[in-house]
Nucleic acid binder design. Structure first.
Lengths: 202, 202
DNA sequence: GACAGCTTACTAACCGGTAAGTAGAGTCAG
DNA sequence: CTGACTCTACTTACCGGTTAGTAAGCTGTC
């Protein structure tokens, strides 16, 4: 017997969504088709129908991330550098709030050497896009004089990206580190938060 | 027939060394007893003899890291904050040079939710020790006026630790990021490297 | 009747883990 | 000095479960 599901790309989308959550909490090698099929109430082979190899699923996941991130940066274009920075911060906050996930770049760079080649290529491109966006934020912030810093925007972007990735992972062990680090980055970029959203670390 | 090996804790040490390399490049769930036993030329069960459960091996690995790190910080006590910082930097450089490994804290925090409880406890303690050392460096640097920064030493330590962990992982994709980030951190701590060891990023 | 979207039923390889046996070195009583 | 015993450090031979992956069949919709 066949049943419900009905809508066209429904199952495929559900697989991607579940795989994404599993990727961010367990890593690429840390989840299996079984885990997905069990939750979705389908058979293992149903997933192989949509994604013949696990690599196909992995690539699809990263490509979706890249499309999403491109839309995200597009939507942020008109904001000030300072506001863009806050949105960048919010991204990591969102991951953490959702079951202590870490950011995709963190998973992908950690597992990088064990990833299939096609996934490595996608991951590299994605990570470079995330890094580049951080650089653009730093550039814009300096141009608008809403940020002040010594050195190149390239280096600030690199620090921004690295720090958030590291802090998001370490937040699994020490919850305070994310807020602490963000405040310190703001301070280092000459951003005075005078009583705004988040309180300084005690 | 028995043979060679001879020395007392030889095999056990070889297992630990190999497992360590595998942990740093592939992650805890990314290596198996088979991989170790194959390289060592022993049977699978030989590893189970020394480490009945994989968890035992994992715990032993972290405990060894903790002992090593304690010796490291002890040996650095008398150095200036600035010199201690450089040695802290060198730690990550060493990992990267060795087969693009990432630091243990990176692996452990990434895999944290899937780690057995006993390993989580060890990992938490270890990571807190690494974080604390970064804070001590910041404190000493400020006390000696070899570093200058706004905000608390706690926050500087957190940024230092997070940034290096993130950058070391991202260096697998973008080799330059480690050097770039270190230079920027020095700049942010008011450290002028005037033509010293490493060139500034272009 | 063609096709999308599954299911059933399977495979080979590998996972961590265990039980039982054994070679060799060391210990000790007579 | 020797035979009996014990301990360490394995090996051989398994176990049940899980992994990704495949082939073939079925069903509802257009």
């Amino acid at each position: 017997m066949k049943m419900e599901s009905a809508v066209k790309g429904e199952t495929r989308k559900k697989i991607l969504d579940l795989a994404e959550a599993l990727l961010l909490s367990h890593g690429y090698h840390g989840f299996s088709y079984q885990q997905i099929s069990k939750v979705l109430g389908v058979r293992n082979a149903a997933i192989h129908y949509h994604f013949p190899h696990k690599t196909d699923l992995g690539v699809a996941l990263i490509q979706r991330y890249r499309r999403r991130f491109a839309r995200f940066t597009d939507s942020q274009q008109l904001l000030s550098g300072r506001e863009q920075l806050e949105r960048y911060f919010e991204l990591s906050e969102t991951y953490f709030a959702k079951d202590r996930q870490i950011c995709p770049s963190g998973v992908l760079s950690t597992e990088f050497p064990r990833l299939p080649e096609i996934m490595q290529a996608e991951a590299s491109a994605f990570i470079d896009e995330m890094r580049s966006w951080a650089v653009l934020i730093a550039l814009k912030g300096r141009a608008e004089a809403t940020m002040t810093y010594a050195g190149e925007a390239e280096a600030i972007g690199a620090v921004l990206f690295s720090t958030l990735q590291g802090a998001l992972q370490l937040a699994r062990i020490d919850e305070n580190i994310l807020v602490t680090v963000k405040n310190q980055i703001r301070a280092m970029l000459g951003i005075n938060m005078a009583g705004l959203h988040e309180k300084a670390d005690k």
